[in-house]
């Protein structure tokens, strides 16, 4: 088109809810500005669907600046689309060309049941964090922030793991739908820092146990997760998790008590 805008064909997965079967439906996205983000392009499509009385395409999104981790979408065979190191909300339409057909699918994993259309339920991630992704300190009564010196390199490395936004792209990208990059990022962050040491081995065990319970697949170190992670979390995290977990299980003498709740 003369103004640089594009006409696109979208093949979108539509599914009313987890209980019903879904299918691909084709839509036209017309007069799309290359400056739009991918989600703004969907907004345009949804606006016209709504005006026709059709239900808009449902997708998860919130901050639209690549940090909340809410947006997802498997676009043309890539989680968060073809560009590296960004989320779908940061993907701009100039990445595509006029006349292109774009296939949009939800994350596919047994542990991520479909909520509606392109939105999936990632509560499994929360449950894994609840199993042990924390340092057990109550509010108040903690030492001064500078009481423990932490080498800059360690703090920086912990930060790199801590940048995980919990979007689930690693699971979506993995051919085994494994969640290990996500789980290992938190285990690594807290395992590196002195504050995380007291619970380091306990944490690795409880988080891995919960991960297994949720029905994620296994890691085969293909590195697809690392390649598709919008925050570029490194595969090394998984090896660190393996080390902590296996050390805990095979070599640590102290017994592991799971606290009882009631």
């Amino acid at each position: 088109m003369s103004n640089g805008n594009m006409n696109l064909t979208l093949k979108v997965w539509r599914q009313k809810n987890a209980q019903t079967a879904g299918k691909f439906v084709t839509y036209k996205a017309e007069n799309i500005s290359p400056d739009m983000s991918f989600l703004e392009m969907l907004d345009v499509v949804n606006e016209s669907l709504t005006l026709k009385g059709d239900e808009p395409i449902n997708f998860d999104h919130d901050c639209r600046e690549g940090i909340c981790g809410m947006c997802s979408l498997y676009i043309n065979g890539h989680p968060h689309g073809p560009k590296r190191g960004i989320t779908t909300c940061q993907l701009h339409m100039r990445t595509f060309h006029d006349g292109e057909t774009i296939t949009i699918e939800p994350w596919r994993a047994a542990a991520f049941p479909i909520v509606k259309d392109l939105a999936v339920d990632r509560a499994a991630f929360d449950r894994i964090q609840q199993a042990g992704g924390y340092v057990s300190v109550n509010t108040g009564g903690v030492p001064d922030g500078n009481a423990i010196a932490i080498p800059k390199v360690i703090a920086d490395e912990a930060f790199n793991s801590a940048t995980c936004i919990g979007c689930g792209a690693c699971v979506a990208a993995c051919k085994n739908a494994s969640a290990m990059l996500f789980v290992s990022a938190k285990i690594t962050q807290l395992g590196l820092l002195p504050q995380g040491q007291p619970e380091r081995y306990r944490r690795a065990q409880s988080m891995v146990a919960q991960m297994d319970e949720e029905g994620f697949g296994n890691c085969t170190n293909t590195g697809a997760c690392e390649a598709e992670c919008p925050k570029e979390i490194k595969l090394t995290n998984i090896a660190r998790m393996n080390n902590d977990y296996l050390s805990a299980k095979l070599f640590r003498e102290e017994e592991i008590h799971e606290e009882q709740h009631g």
Binding site: G77, A110, F216, G217, A227
Partner: peptide, 20 residues
């Protein structure tokens, strides 16, 4: 088998990934 169960529904489009 466990890995297959972890993704009961596959993708329609799978791009060439960076994994070897």
């Amino acid at each position: 088998i466990k890995n297959r169960k972890a993704r009961p529904v596959g993708y329609a489009v799978q791009a060439k990934s960076d994994a070897t």
